[in-house]
Simulated scan of single mutants.
Amino acid sequence: MRARPTAVLAIVASLVVVLAVVAALATRGREHPELDAGTPEGVVQLYVSALFDDDLATAAQYLDPALGCSDPLPEPYLNDTARIAVVKTTTSGDTAKVDLRIEEGSGLNGNWTHDESFTLRRDGGTWLLTEEPWPVYGCK
């Protein structure tokens, strides 16, 4: 009589694990929208994507030279499971502010969400990140 409830529990637990793996694979494979590289939010996307691709030289190209950041950038700590969304973009003349919401972590270890703001200035036809943008700090 005891073997039957144990077998049912094992089957249910196995199904939960399989569903979790399928959900993780489906989420990881999602395409993210490609934003216009000529816009402030597009530059932020390219900068963050370069950091996640561990391409610090490319990430440095999106930074205002006045920051004193150069390749190699300080090694950022990034969570590979981070999900990033543009919350708001405000543009005024040759300056812009892009607000992001970043959710990090996994369901097993807990999730945490934080907001980050990026300030940019237009330099000719391109946008450059000013100040020290997340997650690179202390360039000078």
Rank of each mutant, 00 (worst) to 15 (best):
E104C: 02
E116F: 03
D54C: 03
P135W: 11
V8T: 10
A37K: 08
G93E: 08
R2S: 10
N109L: 13
V43C: 05
S117M: 10
L25E: 08
E131Q: 15
G105M: 08
T130C: 06
L9A: 15
V44K: 03
R101F: 00
Q61T: 15
L19C: 10
L67K: 05
T126D: 15
G38P: 01
S106V: 12
D53K: 14
P74R: 13
V22A: 14
A66H: 03
E132N: 06
V18M: 15
C139F: 04
I11M: 13
P40T: 07
L100Q: 01
A10S: 13
P76N: 11
T39N: 06
A96H: 03
D99L: 14
V16Y: 06
T27R: 12
C69G: 03
R122Q: 14
G125I: 08
D53F: 02
E104D: 04
T27C: 02
L73W: 00
A13I: 12
N111E: 11
D55V: 06
G138Y: 08
G42I: 04
S70P: 00
I11W: 09
Y62A: 09
G105T: 13
L35Q: 02
G29S: 15
P72C: 14
L100H: 03
E116W: 07
W112S: 13
A26L: 15
T6Q: 09
E116L: 02
T39G: 02
V17L: 15
D64A: 11
S14F: 14
T126L: 11
H32C: 02
H114N: 12
C69Q: 02
T113V: 15
V43W: 03
R4F: 13
Q45K: 13
L35K: 10
D71G: 00
A57W: 00
N109V: 10
A57F: 02
D64E: 11
L25I: 09
G107W: 14
T81P: 00
S14E: 01
A37R: 11
T126E: 15
Y77K: 06
N79I: 03
G110F: 06
I84K: 03
A82R: 05
V21R: 09
S14P: 00
